[in-house]
């Protein structure tokens, strides 16, 4: 066994152990999240797979450029293999997102901007595979699919990063894109501006109370369609400087959070958040999440290289059969 092969095998075993560690950490190290319970753990699978999707499609596009430049079969195999792996990770991100949505938002599919754009991306790459299988001539198939792949790759950043941000509102955690929220939140004071507005929700600060390490705010909420005034009590952990309990707005999927407290002057910073906001502020969740990103990247590299190898071998075997085939 050569040194390179030995190193290759060791890397794969390390990846196996690493990913097993992430699975264990996902269930036993990542804490439950207030308002989400165990559903919050899905972030360890959902977000890294979505990130690896972008990496995979970008790698596929690079191979396609190389193919169009040098016309090597190995570049075409690399492009297909990376696109297939990207498609797999994209499907995983979609399914894990639907799972989360079913638990937290009450239905697996909400036509949220991100859900819609990732579905379009899946369809674009499904068309890439359909195009490949529709062309019999090998050279033509490789050339046309490489060109198509470049167009598909151009749409990818738009669909994943631009389009969801152009939407007015999303259920995904992101302060700038939740209708009514502000990235900076609003400060309310007991001895000054007690009343403020987040979108069409009117908030009135009724009091601030310190309970041990927690500062608990009493906030009166008035919303369109809400007959009675609701009183919510979001809290803030003073030692860590992070929001603690985030109650839901009545009849809505968004949460009210205290993002800052000034007990001396009786001020609180309030904001509207989507479920899942602030998940990564917990260090155990954050490091498990980062480890998952590395693990999924390693898994992608293994998967696409293996698939490219299989495709090249299939090609060699097909050529070998033709070469040895004698006329009847």
């Amino acid at each position: 066994m050569s040194d390179r092969l030995r190193l290759d095998q060791a890397a794969k075993i390390l990846l196996g152990v690493w990913m097993a560690g992430i699975v264990v950490a996902m269930f036993l190290v990542v804490p439950q999240y207030v308002g989400l319970g165990d559903a919050g753990r899905i972030i360890i699978l959902h977000v890294p797979t979505a990130w690896i999707t972008t990496v995979a499609f970008a790698v596929s596009a690079v191979y396609s450029i190389r193919y169009l430049w040098k016309r090597r079969a190995s570049d075409d195999a690399g492009a297909v293999a990376a696109a297939e792996a990207g498609f797999l990770f994209c499907a995983l991100a979609t399914v894990s997102g639907m799972w989360f949505a079913n638990i937290v938002w009450g239905t697996p599919w909400n036509w949220d901007p991100r859900e819609t754009t990732i579905l379009i991306l899946l369809l674009i790459y499904a068309a890439y595979f359909a195009l490949r299988s529709a062309l019999d001539d090998v050279e033509r198939r490789r050339r046309l699919s490489a060109v198509y792949n470049l167009f598909a790759a151009v749409t990818m950043p738009f669909l994943l990063f631009v389009a969801p941000r152009m939407a007015e509102s999303t259920l995904h955690p992101n302060c700038a894109f939740i209708q009514g929220s502000h990235c900076d939140g609003i400060w309310l004071e007991l001895n000054g501006a007690r009343v403020g507005q987040l979108g069409d929700v009117v908030l009135a600060l009724q009091g601030i109370e310190q309970r041990g390490d927690l500062a608990v705010a009493q906030v009166e909420v008035r919303m369109p369609g809400l007959r009675e005034v609701a009183l919510l009590t979001p809290s803030f952990e003073l030692s860590s400087g992070k929001p603690a309990d985030r109650p839901e707005f009545p009849g809505q999927q968004f949460l009210l959070a205290v993002e800052g407290v000034d007990l001396t002057n009786g001020r609180v910073l309030l904001n509207m958040e989507a479920p899942g906001t602030g998940l990564l502020s917990n260090s155990r969740t954050f490091w498990t999440f980062m480890a998952a990103n590395i693990g999924f990247l390693g898994l992608f590299i293994w998967l696409y290289r293996l698939r490219a190898d299989v495709l090249l071998l299939q090609d060699r075997l097909a050529r070998r059969e033709v070469a040895y085939e004698l006329p009847a």
Partner: peptide, 29 residues
């Protein structure tokens, strides 16, 4: 939570063995 962990771990071990076997077969071929 332990049941879910056991299921997820089993799935990963299954995927890993599957990939390992394909990898070995590919190398041999």
């Amino acid at each position: 939570i332990y049941t879910a962990l056991a299921v997820a771990l089993t799935v990963w071990i299954g995927i890993f063995i599957f990939l390992w076997r394909i990898d070995s077969a590919t190398r041999e071929l």
